[in-house]
Nucleic acid binder design. Sequence first.
DNA 1: TGTACATCAGTGAACGCGCGTTCACTGATGTAC
DNA 2: TGTACATCAGTGAACGCGCGTTCACTGATGTAC
Lengths: 202, 202
Amino acid sequence: MVRYDAEHKATTRRRIVERAGRRLKCGGIDGSGVAALMSDAGLTNGAFYAHFASKDDLVATVVADQLDIQAKTLTALPPGRPALEAFVRAYLSPEHRDDPGAGCPSAALLDEIGRSSEAIRGIYTDGARRIIDHIAAHLDAHNPLAARKAALGLYTMLVATVQLARAVSDPDLSNEILQSGVDNALHMMAAPTEGLSRAPAV
Amino acid sequence: MVRYDAEHKATTRRRIVERAGRRLKCGGIDGSGVAALMSDAGLTNGAFYAHFASKDDLVATVVADQLDIQAKTLTALPPGRPALEAFVRAYLSPEHRDDPGAGCPSAALLDEIGRSSEAIRGIYTDGARRIIDHIAAHLDAHNPLAARKAALGLYTMLVATVQLARAVSDPDLSNEILQSGVDNALHMMAAPTEGLSRAPAV
DNA sequence: TGTACATCAGTGAACGCGCGTTCACTGATGTAC
DNA sequence: TGTACATCAGTGAACGCGCGTTCACTGATGTAC
């Protein structure tokens, strides 16, 4: 009955999704054609529709997968600030800036996701929620509202800092942006906002 | 000699650039075709190359124009924090989120600009520098380094907050993101980072 | 063990379409006399 | 004032190309006997 072993097709699908993650983050959604995405997985364009209903379907799958990977990275972090600080430093590193294909999907695609279908934005919403929660959990366990607010502030700053560092053509300015980002992020982690009052915290 | 009055062509060109600003911010760079861009200006595709050398040339012109408009908005602001606070509240308003065509080019296009030609990134770099400087000038005149760092933190947070609010499909979450953004931004304006020390400033 | 077979993942050509760009042209304009 | 003219901004059809998608097919596979 079963010709290829049961996992053969699922393995291929996973390979497509994984490679597509890299290419979509490098070339953008509109900038990455189906034929190129399939060729990355060692296949031809015709096989695409045996795995996905449409390009939109693949993109939604990739967005979910990418956010899942990022969420897992955060869950794998030991609890507490030091581990989060290490995450922040890696996120704002020149290595991350220079390798979008291996990096954060939000930094690579956030504005394009904002222009995407309701399906993709729904998938993104679920993933983003989980990531914000994980960051918040690392910030302050017994003041969840302030932690959540600080997590949103931290995450948005990280995302656009990498976007800006990538957009800018002057390497010195780009490095300065990353460095300032680290300082600002650590500052923000040290003193999460509590309403409008100032809260020196450590 | 001169058939149409001297400004006729320049006026048309300005109209193309202005309308293209709206469409590019709404539909993205890859997502906006030359024919559509020209039709927005009441022209047909053929006339495009009498005004611009290529689509890339138009995009570079639009990016420069858009950042110029944003820089002028900031220069027009009266000096001091209250005016900047008003700017921040407008930037993080649902109105800005819901009308990308009339809004910030960075919020709409930053990650796509990062994937664009050296020419476009160079133009973006010049414009972004000016905007950062203007924000820094509003933050702290007599501690320019700290002000610059805080300006970068503030601007990146604003940009990705609007991007995230647009990407998310749940209206409640989107509003929460904007509201948190306002709180975080005002907090950040009140206490710019100075190295790693805490500096309550007003 | 060897052969015939049913399955189905993957191929590659083709579909209509819109892309960025080119170009021969049209026709509204202000000028010359 | 009226007509012929030179200018040139804008038209619209066409170029080759890559897009997302479809489909008749191929050929490697494990099974049956």
